[in-house]
Design a protein around this nucleic acid. Sequence first.
DNA 1: TTGTATGCGTTATCAT
DNA 2: ATGATAACGCATACAA
Lengths: 319, 319
Amino acid sequence: MTNIKDLAKIAEVSVTTVSRVLNNHPYVSEEKRNAVLKAIKVTNYNRNINAVHLSRGKTKLIGVVLPFSDHSYFALLLKGIAKQALANNYYLVLFQTDYMERKEIEALQMLKEKQIDGLIICSRTCDMQLIEEHQQFGSIVLSEDVKGQKISSTFVNHYEIFLNALEYLYQKGHRKIGYCIGRSSGSSSFNRELAYRRFHEKYSLPYNPEYIIAECFYFEDGEKIIEQVKNMATPPTALLVTGDQVAAGIVICCQQQQISIPNDLAICGFDNQPIAKMMNITTIEIPVVEMGENLFLQTINKDISNKEIAVKLIERGTV
Amino acid sequence: MTNIKDLAKIAEVSVTTVSRVLNNHPYVSEEKRNAVLKAIKVTNYNRNINAVHLSRGKTKLIGVVLPFSDHSYFALLLKGIAKQALANNYYLVLFQTDYMERKEIEALQMLKEKQIDGLIICSRTCDMQLIEEHQQFGSIVLSEDVKGQKISSTFVNHYEIFLNALEYLYQKGHRKIGYCIGRSSGSSSFNRELAYRRFHEKYSLPYNPEYIIAECFYFEDGEKIIEQVKNMATPPTALLVTGDQVAAGIVICCQQQQISIPNDLAICGFDNQPIAKMMNITTIEIPVVEMGENLFLQTINKDISNKEIAVKLIERGTV
DNA sequence: TTGTATGCGTTATCAT
DNA sequence: ATGATAACGCATACAA
């Protein structure tokens, strides 16, 4: 492996000059530049990026923390992140956590150890305090409402969205409304449950914990959900489903089991993914890819900003 | 930022000793070890991984080249890769290429520049020769049949699988068989078309290029496919669909349009993803996650190996 | 068991 | 415009 020292020797210049042509710096004569270029060619020289990183103290690498990459929501978020990473000459290091705090800590550790310049946390399990403690080591961005903390974020207002969706179903005549979420812990689930409770208080509706169905991630979970609903003494007449994939799975399952939608059961999805359009599913549109893009841009931006993303109800045939 | 030199000074030992305790090397007295540990604590020391990388000449980083991460097949492959990466203390750098050769070259470049120790290419656009030229810089593994080349791979025999699937449909009485694929170029598409041609020659069936439907990636593409099929003068009676997501999309679309499956149109999917089971879709089971795991293991293994993965026909209700 | 000295490959500072 | 030299922070061969 040849290095710039070798190049310097061959081209009969100093290492500084070699470094200059390597980095397109000014102040180097055409003559010497060509000599260096020639040396690079004949030796088949390759720069050692680790030395560059050590010297510069930066890596142009951004970490992305997410629970699973084979989930449509996070896959889309990642798509947006990757798009802007590409546009800004950064690379991504993926941390698939399966919601294990240990894996999140590893990502924070890499920030500490300077392997990555910044970190995008799409969904977290660990404590906010832990994250704050690591901000000194690099830019950290979250995809949740951090409420005035000194940390950047791009998020949707899960509380408000849920409340609006519930109101919508209420206006459509529904009084027994359930919802399906992924994991039951986490800030978004917390806010959703809060909205759900407030909604029931507001209209003096009975709060039925059975109506909250957790661990709904994928299309095929629709089967499990319908099974659960069917086993209820008084099943809900409408379901808010946080994810169009799952909503689609429910719709399919209902078709198979002769459950009429929206008559027997109304379904409102989330995200407005193509599958929702294709299957004519009423849903809340969330611009996930754009959120990913913004998350990345915030990461490489010095300023701290908090961006709430607007959503939109898309009325179709399942409510 | 304190470094091991500072630690050495504080703990009143040499940098070597500091390095030893940092890396859990033997031959260091409890006394000195504790002194170092204490120094680490009081200074809030963090190792600079870039210096480690430079010194060691390795990064414990493996690159993963794939066209899109929001596609179920590649997401599952990535899942397997990530699983073994985790188990073996490696991290992954993601290269989403959108099938752009330029992005693949960037990944190869990073191998050259020692930012990554190895590279897993899940699907490629670039020339094999280019890849071979980069093997000297690190371990490269492909997910295709490299046919005796001196490079590791984990793959399924697309030619044989397609041939068998076509035979199966033939036995079921089908004579007008079409198929849906992702991109039309690439080695797997080549092999599939080859099988398709041979099959038609063998049974003296008319070869109809219209029956080859490309650019089928996602669930929602099912709609487009059915549209195309309906517009054909003599539509196929069976469709081989390389991906259960797309197959499911087709099935749904047929339901909506009163096209009876398998009577009007038989569908055979690929991968045996959960959605196929849920929707009772006949499919070819491919252990994608296991393939991903094997790809990773090959990457960190010195020896070159080529592993063909066996598949299995899962007969269900759509053929 | 411990320490010295050198190498890893590049960039940055400063002088000329 | 060019170059000598000092960082950057760590690992390790070798010596003791």
